[in-house]
Computed example of a mutant assay.
Amino acid sequence: MIFGIHPVREAIEAGTEIEKIYFRKTAGESLTAADRTNAGAASALREQAEEAGIHIQEVPVEKLNRLTRNGNHQGVAAVIAAISYKDINELAEELEAQIAAGEAPLVMLIDSVTDIRNFGAIARSAECAGVAALIMPAKNSAPVNAEAIKSSAGALTLIPVSRVGSLKGAVALLRNIGMQCVAATEKSDTLVYETDFTRPTVIVMGAEDKGISRDILNLCDMRACIPLAGRIESLNVGAAAAVVLFEARRQRFEQG
């Protein structure tokens, strides 16, 4: 955590990986003269953060006081990312080279998974299954923090993670280099066991409550479901990801 207008600005300009920036919510609050002085600089910083694609959130001053332990935050605090993210274009180039060499990379793309424990479980299963990279949205996603790393048993420090502003753009890019996109969803009559995962594949998993968004679902090449025999309608996304990943791993193992 870093705080204060100038330290946060310097971190952005230095290219520091920033998970999120909290700005003081000023609507309806009484401001001191110092607060009003900082407001202009904080507004300019907010524009800079938005241009850099950094997720921002407005919070009451009480939360900023707690986060900074009553430090001189000037209405701004930033959470530094616990890992270095992989650029999606650089990742695509590496995957394309692997495909050209006759390999079949496996990638996991998660659409708005916000629960840290599920996110960590997905990363752990992905690393154990030999996934080449994990792709996640910059917004509406679980933070990559110490708790997430612990939930992943350290997998998030081992597997490349790409955080993108547009999941649609990422899907289009990966399809363009020759990867098929398979949506893991109950909205399918095709079982995961009937799906060919031996090809270069992006497995798409959706949010815990809403599943994969319609826009992303429509971009996928195919949909596959996990057959359930019990009375509960679905697995949580962490368990579902493990099932799909290791079905892909099984197929590749049998193929040799």
Rank of each mutant, 00 (worst) to 15 (best):
A126M: 05
M108H: 03
I2W: 15
I116W: 15
T157V: 11
R250V: 02
I212R: 00
L235N: 10
A100I: 05
I159K: 09
K139G: 03
L228K: 10
R175H: 12
L67R: 02
P7N: 07
E29F: 05
A133R: 07
R231D: 03
N140L: 14
L156I: 00
A148H: 01
L235C: 06
K63Q: 12
R9V: 06
S43I: 00
L45P: 04
Y85E: 11
L174R: 03
T195I: 09
N118M: 08
L235P: 08
L219Y: 15
M108K: 00
Q180K: 13
L156M: 13
R199L: 13
V237I: 13
S162H: 08
G75N: 05
E93C: 02
I216S: 03
T26G: 04
V59R: 06
L95A: 11
A27E: 14
A39M: 14
T16A: 07
V237W: 04
L158K: 15
K187R: 15
N218D: 15
V182A: 00
K139P: 05
A92W: 13
G206M: 07
R124T: 02
C225V: 03
I159T: 12
S162V: 09
P143K: 00
V59D: 04
S125D: 14
I54L: 05
A33H: 04
N176P: 07
E62R: 08
L167S: 08
G230K: 04
A42K: 03
G15S: 08
G165F: 12
V204E: 05
F119K: 01
L217G: 07
E13R: 14
D196Q: 10
A123W: 05
L109S: 00
S30A: 07
V161K: 00
V107H: 13
A126R: 01
A142Y: 11
L45W: 05
A132I: 01
A132W: 08
K63V: 14
D87F: 07
L173G: 06
Q180L: 12
M205Q: 06
C128F: 15
I18T: 02
G154C: 01
M1Q: 05
K20V: 08
T157P: 00
I149W: 11
L228C: 00
V164R: 00
V164H: 01
R9M: 09
R249F: 15
I12M: 09
I21S: 02
E19N: 09
L217P: 01
A146G: 05
D209W: 04
E127N: 14
N218F: 09
G178V: 13
K63N: 04
T16D: 07
D115E: 10
S152A: 14
G53A: 03
R214I: 06
A77L: 13
A155R: 09
N70C: 05
E51T: 10
E50P: 03
V237K: 00
G53H: 09
I5N: 02
E51D: 13
R36V: 13
N145S: 04
G169W: 11
A239R: 03
K63L: 14
A170D: 05
A44W: 10
A242W: 05
L106D: 05
E208F: 02
Q180R: 14
T201S: 08
R69T: 00
D221N: 15
Y193D: 08
I203D: 06
T195D: 11
V79G: 06
Q74M: 08
Q180A: 13
L245E: 03
A241D: 08
A81N: 04
